[in-house]
Simulated assay, not measured.
Amino acid sequence: MMTRIALLLLIAASLYCTVTAGTGDIARDCCLSINPLPLPRRLAASYKLSDPGCNLKATVFTTRKGKHVCAPLPEDSEWVRKLIALLDKQ
Rank of each mutant, 00 (worst) to 15 (best):
V19G: 05
T63I: 04
A27D: 12
P40G: 03
C30I: 06
P40A: 06
T23Q: 12
N55S: 14
R41T: 03
C17S: 15
N35E: 09
P38K: 01
R64W: 04
Y47T: 00
T23M: 11
I26Q: 15
S33E: 15
A45P: 04
L15H: 05
A21F: 06
R28F: 02
C54F: 00
P52K: 13
L39E: 03
L15V: 07
R64C: 02
C31N: 12
P38W: 02
G22A: 12
Y47Q: 06
A45W: 05
T59P: 01
G22W: 08
V19N: 08
S14D: 04
T59D: 06
L43H: 08
A58G: 02
Y16G: 05
Y16P: 02
P36N: 05
D29T: 11
D25P: 11
A27Y: 13
L15A: 06
K48N: 14
A45Y: 02
R41C: 00
F61R: 07
R41N: 03
Y47S: 02
G22S: 11
D51P: 04
V60N: 02
T18K: 13
D51M: 00
P52G: 13
Y47R: 00
C31H: 12
C30M: 03
C17P: 11
K48P: 11
N35I: 10
L43E: 04
L32S: 12
S14R: 09
C54A: 05
A27T: 12
C70D: 01
K65E: 11
D25W: 14
S33H: 14
G53P: 08
C70V: 07
L49A: 15
I34R: 09
V60L: 08
G24R: 05
L32W: 12
L43W: 07
A21K: 07
P40R: 00
P40V: 01
P38E: 00
N55K: 14
C54W: 05
D29R: 13
D29A: 13
R28T: 01
S33A: 15
C70G: 07
L43S: 01
V69L: 06
S50P: 05
K65L: 12
V60W: 01
L37H: 09
C54T: 02
G66R: 01
I26E: 15
A27H: 12
H68I: 11
N35P: 07
R42F: 08
A21Y: 06
S33N: 14
P38C: 03
R42K: 05
D25A: 14
G24A: 03
H68Y: 13
R41Y: 05
L15R: 08
C70I: 04
N55C: 13
T62M: 05
D25R: 15
R42V: 07
I26R: 15
Y47F: 02
K48R: 15
A44G: 01
I26W: 14
P38A: 00
L32T: 12
P40L: 03
P40N: 03
H68S: 13
G22T: 11
G22E: 10
S14L: 09
R64V: 00
T20R: 13
N35A: 10
D29S: 12
